[in-house]
Simulated scan of single mutants.
Amino acid sequence: MRSRHVFGHLRGMSALLLAAIAVGPAAAQNWPDHPIRLIIPLAAGGATDKAARLLAQRLGTALGQQVVAENLTGASGEIALKRVASAPADGYTLGATANSLHTVAPHMSRLPYDAVNDFTWLGTYASFEYVLVTRADAPDKDLGALLARARKAPDAVSYGSSGVGTGNHLAGALLGDLAKVRFNGIPYRGGSPAMIDVIAGRTDFMFDVVGGAKALIDGAKVKALATSGKARSSLLPDVPTVAETVPGYEATGWFGLVAPAGLPADIAKRLEAEVARIAQDPDYRRQLETLGYHAQAIPSAALKRAVAIESEKWRAVVQQLPCSSRGASCEGTKP
């Protein structure tokens, strides 16, 4: 009797398992049948937020369901990404993310999620370069002059950033590392106050996203010395790259779309295909250019590999930072 009961119980479990397997594809085929939430780890109103909302609008049109953008700020993106990672993997919660949140943040502090494996990677939708700017009447005529001044007086030349562990913070740290100079890094609570102090001459320079700094450069509020990509920026074609002075330098960024790990394969493929298609749309590309970004669609598999490579690059840079410049104590920072 006991064995019949056990076998009957197992048959019941098998039936439930088969039913679940049968329902999974059917549910995916009906997706989406209600609005999708896109969590953005930044405050509303900035160019980065606008780029994510532009993607949300076009995704909604392509999928036939509204994609509702929700800004969730705090802890340098950690709160938003934790929400995404812990959401059901059903295609109704997506996240807009940036490279530094996965390639730098894990080396600055312990995160409540695995920055790579707790997400389904769906591709990138935009990329950008930084530009190194000084005050308009700064004495340095080019990057070489700035570096020469820093070599003569270690720690006397300062650079501002949007905060500890941000992309432009690490862009400055990488420059110091490769050029063998010591800068005085000063983190601010956002890019705007950092830029205000550069304009006023209270800090010597900062890296800012090209699109955000271009109006200030055109208006002679700041002077552009170098851009951070491998090639010159199409928005600032007359400005040399950092690599023209410091070989091997590159510090760029991208924005990508992620979902919780375990997203059904057919939903993931559909989203990846739509993101790639949107990135090729000429009107979308023009709209991104007005925000200072480039449309770029790196597919999911290549993106996950790129994250791993970038992570190792920035790990080495973070390890060179003094404890006071990291997002947590040295004891709390991953080796």
Rank of each mutant, 00 (worst) to 15 (best):
S234D: 14
R151T: 10
A276E: 09
L236F: 06
C330E: 14
L111I: 03
E244C: 11
T290P: 03
N117S: 14
R4H: 13
S234I: 13
S161A: 03
A156R: 03
G165H: 12
L101P: 00
D218F: 02
Q57D: 04
L42R: 06
K223Y: 07
Y113K: 10
A26Q: 12
E312P: 03
D140W: 10
R232A: 14
G172V: 08
P299A: 12
D33I: 08
H169T: 03
T290H: 05
S300I: 04
K152N: 08
L174G: 02
D90C: 11
S3M: 11
L17A: 08
D90G: 10
A279F: 05
F7E: 06
A136K: 00
A115Q: 01
R182G: 05
G219E: 04
Y159G: 09
A302Y: 13
S234N: 14
A89H: 15
A69Y: 01
S76P: 01
A80D: 01
W31Q: 08
A194N: 01
E244K: 10
L132G: 06
R11A: 12
T73F: 06
G123F: 00
A279M: 05
S324C: 10
A215P: 14
W254G: 00
R326N: 07
A213K: 00
S311T: 08
V6D: 15
V198N: 02
T97A: 03
D142N: 12
W31P: 02
G212A: 09
S86K: 10
S192F: 09
V239Q: 00
A153S: 12
G95S: 05
A75Y: 05
T48P: 10
D283F: 07
L147G: 05
D281N: 05
Y188E: 01
P88D: 10
G24W: 14
L38Y: 01
A220P: 03
R286A: 15
G212F: 09
G60M: 09
V116I: 12
A259E: 00
A328Q: 08
N30S: 14
G60D: 04
E70C: 15
H34Q: 06
C330I: 06
A115K: 00
D204V: 05
V131F: 06
R11K: 14
A301W: 09
L174E: 07
V246L: 14
A148H: 11
P264K: 03
L147C: 09
H9P: 11
L288G: 01
K214Y: 14
A105K: 10
I39F: 07
S14C: 14
R305H: 09
D114H: 08
E289H: 15
S158C: 08
R2T: 14
V242H: 10
A243L: 09
T333Q: 13
Y130P: 03
A26W: 14
G211D: 09
H34V: 06
P154E: 09
V133R: 00
R135V: 10
S127W: 03
I39R: 01
